[in-house]
Every structure is written in structure tokens, then in C-alpha cells.
Simulated scan of single mutants.
Amino acid sequence: MAENILEISGLNKRYGKIQAVNNLELKVEKGTVFGLLGPNGSGKSTTLGILLGVVQKDSGIYKWFGKEPTAAQRRNLGAILESPTFYPYLSGIQNLKIVCKIKEVPEKRILEVLTQVGLGNRADSPFKSYSLGMKQRLAIASALLSDPEVLILDEPTNGLDPQGIAEIRELIINIAEKGKTIILASHLLDEVQKVCTHFAVLKQGEKIFQGTVAESLMGNEGIELMAQDLDNLKSVASKFPAFVDMKLNNLGRLEVQLSNDTPIHEFHQYLIKNGIILTHLSYINKSLEKQFLQLLSGNE
């Protein structure tokens, strides 16, 4: 049985008339990359703040490593909750030395974590010369200085360009492969889909779904088709016994939904028998984005 590194039960936090966290129930297994998904204002950052002891909960219980939170336990947590803030004229090494003093951890890991996040060759460069992606990697390096068992990241790719996003994504995967448990909050569904093993969806502070990414992406959303005579393809496809729905996508291809468990080869043979020669045929892969939007719209 998997070990739960975090357990949340009945967690609540209100700011005036706003219920930021609403009776939240959540479990995170050791060794997973867990994504907290939700639109702005869904309670992701407030939840992480409570778990790190920087936001006071109104009620509820949460346990790290099976126990009530203590200062000693929180030393096993590395976190980035806001945009990285370092001294601009100091180098990466100099900034991390200051972090070591604040966290009361030895400086011996500085070069190790800088290398781990890909900043080994820029360790002596001033922070102001770093790109946004490099600044975020330095922040992750600072969170790793105490060699925490859990790494908590709030919107780790926010504001980054595509290259920076790809770099942080690769870094998160590499850290997870070393056995760390990672909890990250994000509204970028594609990034969660690519790096997370598990995820939960929050809406107005309440959990509306929790599951694994792999299970959520099993199967497909239909079939994408193309033929020289598109009108005839539409007419013939609509008469297939297992036909459910169809639409044209922005590529000018026909997307067809069939009833569950209908083998694609049966549909293809049906089209051939009716004189349809396809120029394109592929599955429409599932995405977290579509499921995320369905979850939100289904809980209005």
C-alpha cells in the first residue's frame, strides 16, 4: 500500500465573504508529482500557504508524514510560493550563501544544487544577468539546499517563454526521478499533463476531482478523418450504426465520435464498402484541458 506523505481533512479558510478553501479533502502519495489544478481564485495558493505554515487555517486537519505539522517537519519541505527574489548584484553562489544562513543549513550543497538545476556554469554570474528561466531555476536550487523530501512549487512556469517552460518542466521531471515528492500548483494544463503523475482539480476552494494523469488520458476522444469528397464522407459516416456526433475542426478535418468500444477497423471497413477512400485517419487523443473544462462546467 502506498505511503501518504500528506493528508488533508476538512480544511477551511475564509477571507471575509470569500471561502478560499472549502472543506478540502486530499491525499498525496510519496514519490508522486502531484498537480493542483484550478483557475485563478480556486484556492491553490492559499492551500499551499496553509500547508507551509505561512497562512493560518480556520479549521480542519493536515498531516505531513503522518503527523501534525511541526517546525522540524517543515524542514523536510522545500518551497517556492512567489516570484524568486534575490540580490541583483550578487552571484548565484553569493545569493545561495545568504539563503543557507537564513535556513541554517550548511553551504556544502550550493555547487551541487546549482549543477542540478543547470546553473553550474553561471554560478559566479550576477543574478541580474539571469534570464527569467534561470532566475526560476535558482529559486528551485534554493529550495533544494536543505535536501527536502518534498518540493512545493506555486506556478513554477508562470511568465516564462516556451524555452523557459521546457527547461523547468525537464528540471521537475529530473528532480522527481531522484525520489522527491513534488506538489505543484498550476493553471497550465499542458504542463501538468506532461510532468505530473497525479492531480486534483479545485474550484472555489473545493476539490471536484482527484485521480492519476495516466487514467485520465486512457482511451480517445474520437477519430479525425479526411477524404477528397468531404460532403460524401459526412453523409456516409453519419449512417454508421455506432455514429454519435461529428464536427469540422480548425484544420478542415472531420472529427467523428462513435459509441463506446466501437473498433475503429469496423468503421474503416464500413467506409471502404461505401466507396469512401480516406486521405487521413487518426485517433483524437484525450487531454486534461478538455476534461478540466468539463469538470468546471459540470459543477456550476
Rank of each mutant, 00 (worst) to 15 (best):
G211F: 04
N299F: 11
I80T: 10
L11Q: 05
A72T: 09
D124A: 12
F292S: 03
G38P: 08
S9D: 13
I5V: 15
T115M: 11
F243I: 00
A214G: 03
M134E: 07
E25D: 14
G66L: 04
N232F: 10
L188N: 12
F209E: 09
N4Y: 14
H268P: 00
V117Q: 01
S125E: 15
N220Y: 12
I208M: 06
D261P: 04
Y130F: 14
R253F: 02
K101I: 03
D147W: 11
H265R: 12
L189T: 08
S45F: 03
N260P: 07
T157A: 14
G49M: 03
G211Q: 09
I172S: 10
H198E: 04
I276R: 03
D261G: 13
M246I: 01
E215T: 13
N121P: 02
D229R: 05
D229N: 14
E191C: 07
K103R: 15
R14F: 08
L6G: 05
I223M: 10
I276H: 01
F209K: 11
A123Q: 13
K234Q: 08
N23Y: 06
E221G: 00
L271N: 04
Q269K: 14
L188S: 08
D261N: 15
G219H: 10
E221L: 13
K27C: 07
I276G: 04
A139F: 00
Q291A: 07
F292V: 00
S59V: 07
V192Q: 05
E104C: 10
V113L: 01
G49C: 01
I175P: 00
A141G: 06
L37D: 02
K135A: 01
G179K: 12
G219T: 08
I264E: 10
G252W: 01
N23A: 12
F267N: 04
V213A: 07
K128C: 06
N220D: 15
T181I: 08
A166V: 08
L188V: 13
L111A: 15
I80Q: 08
N158K: 02
P88I: 13
V201L: 12
L296N: 04
F199R: 06
V236Q: 01
K108R: 12
K30M: 09
N121G: 07
N121R: 14
Y283M: 12
L258P: 09
S287Y: 00
V55Q: 12
R74C: 05
L77A: 03
K13I: 10
R122I: 07
R109Y: 09
K203Q: 14
W64A: 05
M226Y: 08
N274W: 06
G298Y: 04
D58F: 12
G53E: 05
K17E: 15
G16A: 09
E289N: 14
E177L: 14
N95C: 09
K203E: 13
L281D: 03
L111K: 15
F199L: 11
G78S: 07
L6S: 07
S259K: 15
G298L: 06
L248A: 05
Q56T: 12
E170R: 13
L225A: 02
L271A: 04
G120K: 13
S42Q: 05
K203F: 06
K286W: 05
P69E: 04
